[in-house]
């Protein structure tokens, strides 16, 4: 591609008079992208998350050993070396392979929680904010009840009731993480619901349902995305915590939290058994946090103008 075609594509994207729906949408996305990629740390966060996705997808190819079967006879608790880059655990399993496979479970938890919790929070918050009155009072008191308990304790209670296992852990984390999203969505809704542009849609004869769904929700989504991304680290840690307490993923699943739990017995002598998954959690959490910060700058509705 010559410099000229790149330049003309950029002009097309940044055009002040787009000629189609598509061009307008792409142009908007491009402006957000430029703002995002100007932020180096955010870009680093994005790279970490992309790396996580790639690793999860290609774990089968990348992992040098099986994640669940180890060599009990010859390679228990080996220190990191050329054979086993991150060493091996008490069952002789290669820790690197387990971490690579574990990335799948981390993604699984994070994505499922986001898919369940964010829409619930968005719906509860926007409906409460737009409807006001009794609806608002009831929905927000329910939200308050959930917020009144520490997240991990509540999740523990749910898992205890539902039974241990990674699916139940996901459900428990999702149930405990929607209230802050509802709060955010409600606050955003309150700021826009009396604006003239919402009044104008009311004057078109739009139903309250349509107004919430098509006009208010899109305005709340960017702050929600930012918040969810920033919460990802917390979700990973909660899942790891549940795993650590034996209530999340069950052995021999290579989930990072469970791995730390089983490594804690040797943490002083064979530090890498717990240290390696801990480091993986740290890196991924950092990635999500950096990404979230970058998104906040790029998607901030107040900087709608370029």
């Amino acid at each position: 591609m010559s410099a000229e075609t790149i330049q003309s594509r950029r002009d097309w994207l940044l055009s002040e008079r787009p000629a189609s729906r598509m061009q307008a949408r792409l142009g908007r996305a491009y402006v957000a992208w430029r703002r995002f990629s100007a932020n180096r740390l955010a870009f680093l966060g994005l790279l970490i998350i992309i790396a996580l996705l790639v690793v999860a997808a290609l774990a089968g190819v990348l992992a040098p050993y099986s994640p669940t079967f180890g060599d009990l006879k010859g390679s228990r608790l080996l220190a990191p070396g050329a054979e086993h880059w991150f060493g091996t655990d008490d069952l002789g399993r290669d820790i690197l392979s387990r971490i690579l496979y574990g990335s799948r479970w981390t993604l699984y938890v994070v994505i499922l929680v986001a898919i369940i919790a964010a829409p619930i929070g968005l719906l509860v918050g926007t409906v409460a904010g737009y409807a006001g009155g009794w609806t608002d009072a009831i929905l927000m008191r329910i939200t308050d009840i959930f917020l009144a308990f520490p997240k991990l304790i509540l999740a523990l209670a749910f898992v205890a009731a539902l039974g241990p296992g990674i699916e139940n852990a996901v459900l428990a984390i999702a149930i405990t993480s929607w209230p802050p999203y509802a709060r955010i969505a409600r606050a955003e809704t309150l700021t826009v619901r009396n604006s003239d542009y919402i009044k104008a849609v009311q004057l078109m004869g739009a139903s309250p349902f349509r107004i919430v769904l098509r006009h208010i929700m899109p305005l709340c989504i960017s702050s929600l995305i930012i918040r969810v991304t920033l919460d990802m680290a917390g979700i990973i840690l909660t899942a790891a915590g549940l795993g650590f307490l034996g209530l999340g993923a069950q052995p021999p699943l290579p989930e990072w939290g469970t791995m730390i739990a089983s490594g804690r017995r040797f943490v002083l002598d064979q530090w890498w058994v717990a240290g390696a998954p801990g480091f993986a959690i740290l890196i991924v959490s950092l990635g999500f946090n950096l990404l979230g910060d970058g998104l906040r700058d790029a998607l901030d509705p107040r900087s709608g103008d370029q």
Binding site: A24, D196, Y197, A200, H215, P218, L219, P301
Partner: peptide
């Protein structure tokens, strides 16, 4: 204030 900030004229 009377035009939705996230919508095109269309």
């Amino acid at each position: 204030g009377s035009l939705h900030p996230r919508q095109t004229v269309d």
